[in-house]
Design a protein around this nucleic acid. Structure first.
Length: 137
DNA sequence: GCCAACGTTGGC
DNA sequence: GCCAACGTTGGC
């Protein structure tokens, strides 16, 4: 079981829209970055991820589960780009903001803090637990 | 809305 | 294969 973090601008695709898709989930299309794509290729069905709102809110708002493994991204004809499907699992009782993540020394190495521009990131098990604990889970 | 960071592209 | 130019992301 691995842990991940998915970034989205809520203007483009928000947590509420993700929740509305329910158990069926939705393709995480639009990734045009090799590192992010490689992370998605490494995902297995059942892996969990955080759902992060960039730009507006700048906070981790929910938990998602990988519902389908990597396949061609239907939003492009370019065969280089692939994506997974994810479905909403639950909202965090309390969202964790980027500021909070930055303020916690235990999260100093988190990709969210260190590599702000990567849109699909790995999260370590230790980081996962810390964020869950901060969020009140 | 600005700009820094960073990834990609393309000329040489 | 280097590197300058360019585009995009995302925090501020």
């Amino acid at each position: 079981m691995a842990y991940w973090l998915f970034k989205s601008e809520p203007d483009a695709w928000s947590w509420d829209q993700q929740v509305a898709k329910g158990a069926a989930g939705e393709e995480w299309t639009g990734v045009r970055n090799y590192q992010a794509r490689n992370n998605m290729r490494a995902m297995k069905t059942g892996d969990l991820g955080f759902f992060y709102h960039s730009n507006i809110g700048k906070e981790i708002v929910g938990i998602v589960e990988v519902s389908a493994e990597c396949h061609p991204d239907s939003s492009t004809d370019d065969p280089r780009w692939e994506c997974v499907d994810i479905r909403a699992v639950r909202a965090l009782p309390r969202p964790i903001t980027l500021d909070e993540a930055k303020a916690d020394p235990r999260l100093a190495d988190m990709a969210l803090v260190k590599n702000t521009r990567l849109s699909v990131q790995p999260v370590t098990e230790a980081e996962w637990k810390i964020v869950c604990e901060l969020a009140g889970l």
